[in-house]
Write a protein that binds this DNA or RNA. Structure first.
Lengths: 329, 329
DNA sequence: CCTCATTGTGGAACCGGTTACACATTTAAA
DNA sequence: TTTAAATGTGTAACCGGTTCCACAATGAGG
């Protein structure tokens, strides 16, 4: 690998001049620049980012920390982040936390050790010391904490919507699956749904699910029909669980949506490929990723910013696991 | 952030000694070591990986290049790579290539600029100059090229299995969906299936699909039943397309597997949640990721290695989009 | 008691960039 | 024509580690 000194020698100039050409800073005579540029081409020179990063004390790397890329909600987020970052010449160091704070700490540390300029994290505890003490900007994604830069969607509103729509379509004995307690958006959704159903005076029962994973989804699904065998409407904690519920319902010979309606959360890509296609509360995951990346870039480049928290809309995405609403208007 | 010089001063020793303590190299007196260790603790010192990487000309970073993390097959791979790397204290710089060689080049370049010690890539053209000229080890994942370190599964055998099993279960008018031409494993699968059906003397028709994406999957599915309306068996190019075919078949009022059998490829996590659950040719994606990471680590740490290419088994995973085979044994 | 290997430590060069500063030359203004 | 500003370039320090080498002290063997 050629170094800047090789280029300097080859072009008959000093390293400072080469640096000026590369970075387009300071004065460089047109002729000199040409010489340097040909030298760069001839030697196939590309600057060593590590050396650059050492002196500047900042790199073009950002850290991305997600709970689990294998959970279908996150790849979309990650892709959004990656696309936006890629377009702005930032690269991503990526890690899975499994929602474990030990792994989280470990990654945060190595991010810092690698001079990342910023970080995007989907964590349950944005308020922890580990984040507070960082002197690089951090954007919280999907999970949020007031007053910290974040991009998320309104879980409470999502829960409210789900409850309202499933009720409007006639379910009167609803099973609400509550996601993991430590996961903020899951709790918000649950609260939104539960409070709305209470307000509407509609009976519902709660099924606890302690994870979002595909592996256990089937368990929660069975649990639903064990605890509430005659349910006519299920609000699942996310689309994976909803898919499992749908699967279990059909297996039990129930008709969907005639006997039982099902609403999920997230709108993961495969939801529309289910049979029947899943009605869900959509979060614009890809756009959230992009927005988080944009926000982080702004924080990196400028200092202050008026709006640090971006709430993305959730939308009721009607497909075929719910009945058609009676139109009253 | 404290530096090694701060620690040295605080402990009353030289930076060389601190470095020896950190790296457990050379001679350090027990008492001195204690002093240094307390200084490190008191200052919350962690070594700057960038400085380290600059001098050593290698980091603890590896590059991971995948076509598209949003395609459900890849998160599992990525997770396998990440887990193995994480356990061995390597971090991952991650990029999506979208199968575009321009993006690929760009990432390879920045990986090198960041002193990565190795690279895992899922690319259509492992033989390209861009990879050949690298002086860091590269492991090719999912896609392969003879004689280059790689981890992949036997697409041809997968195709053969799919054809054999769907035939054994009675399909006689088969539609084979052919994946993108430039994607090696897709072509292998297709060849395996086509040649086997030919050998068995079973009629089949080919449907071209030029992508693996979720967005277009529905199009290929419709195409299948437009071109071969009376098909009684579909071998899809992957599980996403298979899911779309299943969806379309049910939409058209066909019974699965009674009227039409469907076999996918990959066994992505959601395949088992479909209704009916999808019969598929399984690739152990997570394990492939881990194996690739292990192989790369070996290449990084040792020099030579007897077995550079690892072929993972594909398995016929029988679920309910195929009929039960008549047992003859 | 002398010699030499082992142990212990520090100084300084080095990795490959960036940039402050000094200095020279050209251009423009007075 | 003089002077100041603008332009152009090189030297060397610096970023924060690692490691080579020199040197001192200690311990073992003869």
């Amino acid at each position: 690998m050629a170094t800047i000194r090789d280029v300097a020698k080859h072009a008959g100039v000093s390293v400072a001049t080469v640096s000026r050409v590369i970075n387009e800073t300071g004065y460089v005579h047109e002729d000199t620049r040409k010489k340097v540029e040909t030298a760069i081409k001839e030697l196939h020179y590309t600057p060593n980012e590590v050396a650059r990063s050492l002196y500047k004390r900042k790199s073009r790397l950002i850290g991305l920390l997600l709970p689990d890329i294998a959970n279908p909600f996150f790849p979309e987020l990650a892709r959004g982040v990656e696309d936006e970052m890629q377009e702005n010449d930032f690269r991503i160091i990526f890690g899975n936390s499994d929602e474990k704070s030990s792994k989280e700490q470990e990654y945060i540390q190595t991010f810092v050790q690698n001079n990342v300029v910023g970080m995007i994290a989907s964590t349950n505890d944005p308020d922890t010391h580990a984040y507070r003490k960082l002197n690089i900007p951090v954007v919280f994604l999907d999970r949020t904490m007031d007053n910290r830069p974040s991009v998320y969607s309104d879980g409470y509103e999502g829960g409210r919507l789900a409850a309202q729509e499933i009720a409007a379509r006639g379910s009167r004995n609803i099973a609400v699956i509550q996601g993991p307690e430590r996961v903020r958006p899951a709790m918000d959704r649950f609260r939104g749904a539960a409070e709305t159903l209470k307000d509407l005076d509609i009976a519902f029962q709660v099924i606890q699910s302690s994870s979002f994973g595909i592996a256990e989804a089937g368990v929660w699904a069975k649990e639903v029909f064990r605890k509430v065998p005659d349910t006519d409407g299920v609000i699942a904690s996310n689309d994976i669980v909803a898919a499992a519920v749908l699967h279990e319902a059909l297996r039990l010979g129930k008709k969907v949506p005639e006997d039982v309606q099902i609403i999920g959360f997230d709108d993961i890509p495969l939801s529309s490929l289910l049979t029947p296609p899943l009605t869900t509360i959509r979060q614009p995951a890809y756009e959230m990723g992009r927005a988080a990346a944009r926000l982080l870039i702004q924080l990196i480049e400028k200092e202050a910013l008026d709006n640090h928290t971006i709430q993305m809309p959730v939308t009721f995405t009607e497909r075929d696991t719910t009945r058609k609403a009676e139109k009253n208007d």
